[in-house]
Simulated scan of single mutants.
Amino acid sequence: MIIISEREIATLVSPADCFAAVEGVFASMAKGKAYNFPVVREAIGHADALYGFKSGFDRESLALGLKSGGFWPGNVEKGLTNHQSTIFLFDADTGCCRAIVGGNLLTALRTAASSALSIKYLARPEARVIGMIGAGHQSTFQLSAALDQRRFEKVVGWNIEPSALGRLESVAVERGIPFEAVDLDRLGAEADVIITITSSFAPILKAAQVRPGTHLACMGTDTKGKQEVEAELLAKASVFTDEIAQATSIGEAQHAVAQGLLAATDIVAIGSVINGAHPGRRSPEDITLFDGTGVGLQDLAVASTAVDLAIARGVAREIDF
């Protein structure tokens, strides 16, 4: 069995590696070759933690396994990341455990890769201003990955605590792009692409604040009850997602579906756009929205990439198990 520790991931796997892995598995999902198993996510009644499993199987790559972990809100006071996860890969032919891979950085990279993919396939080619709603730990990964997809000339940002926007400004400055903190009205008026990455349980961005032609990647809603944008916005938009069943149950689409503003049949799997089976954006005036819920197959894809790279570079650590 191969062990890849959390500290090894940063020097082993690049954002580009994760982008390619996620692009491939989304395409496989849309072809019906890969599927996710039901998600388990529970409050454990200790340390205010949420804990769960995401798992699945890709018949094309033979990636089989699960990610185990969750959210421990008190970890930051202990010098640890609040989100903790580990990925287990199994040999599809034998069921033997193939690898254990640190999942914290890979989760951040695969989440950023999915929103970046939505920009690649759905945002207008001439998009030049990107808006960021949310400035937590994951936001820097989101912005960095997004900046690779278009020739953005400006970053505008909003956060409930404006002091946290400095981390986004640092990413923009490093890339030689100006950054400005703005209110939500101005963000919606200026941004060609908007990424929401918060833990909100009430809509932050209103439908009236988003202009025609905007592409949105809503990345924070992954639990029943969470919500980042008004349900009416999904009714106005062409909606895409990583997995339709998950989007309607725990994703941003859950609220629009519950209110009868959107049907599951109105939502398109982003893999269908990647495969060329769906055209994606149909006109420059369309509002497109990607509901990024995060699926277990993403984790298996990037962890498999990490294992393959470790083997190819001769740095894989193997133990008898």
Rank of each mutant, 00 (worst) to 15 (best):
Arg59Pro: 02
Ala312Lys: 14
Asp183Asn: 15
Arg41Asp: 15
Val25Asp: 10
Thr196Gly: 13
Ala47Asp: 14
Glu232Lys: 06
Ala30Ser: 00
Ala172Val: 04
Tyr35Gln: 13
Lys226Phe: 04
Asp93Gln: 08
Val39Thr: 14
Ala208His: 13
Leu117Cys: 06
Thr94Tyr: 11
Asp17Ser: 08
Gly56His: 03
Leu233Gln: 04
Gly95Glu: 09
Arg98Pro: 03
Thr293Tyr: 01
Thr81Gly: 03
Thr140Lys: 11
Tyr35Val: 11
Ala301Glu: 11
Ala113Ile: 03
Glu318Asp: 08
Ser28Tyr: 04
Leu205Gly: 07
Arg110Tyr: 03
Ala207Val: 06
Ala277Cys: 08
Arg317Lys: 14
Gln138Leu: 07
Ile4His: 03
Lys67Cys: 03
Ala258Asp: 13
Ala146His: 03
Leu168Cys: 02
Gly95Pro: 10
Glu252Gln: 13
Lys236Ile: 09
Gly56Cys: 05
Lys31Ser: 15
Gln149Pro: 07
Leu143Trp: 03
Glu230His: 11
Ile287Leu: 10
Leu106His: 12
Ala202Ile: 07
Thr248Asn: 10
Glu153Ile: 10
Arg282Val: 13
Val13Met: 05
Cys96Ile: 11
Arg110Glu: 01
Ala92Trp: 07
Lys236Leu: 14
Met132Asp: 02
Ser283Asp: 08
Ser115Asp: 12
Ser85Lys: 00
Asp17Phe: 05
Thr107Lys: 06
Glu243Met: 13
Ile195Phe: 00
Ala310Val: 09
Gly220Leu: 00
Pro203Phe: 09
Glu232Leu: 06
Ala116Ser: 10
Phe37Asp: 13
Trp72Gln: 06
Asp91Phe: 06
Cys96Trp: 09
Ala181Val: 04
Met29Gln: 15
Ile3Pro: 00
Glu232Pro: 01
Val76Asn: 12
Lys33Ala: 15
Lys78Val: 02
Glu6Ser: 08
Ser163Gly: 05
Cys18Tyr: 04
Cys18Glu: 06
Asp93His: 10
Ala245Lys: 06
Ser163Cys: 05
Ile311Glu: 15
Phe26Leu: 15
Ala269Leu: 12
Pro279His: 09
Gly276Glu: 01
Ala316Asp: 07
Ile195Asn: 00
Asp58Tyr: 10
Ser115Gln: 14
Gln209Ser: 12
Leu66Gln: 05
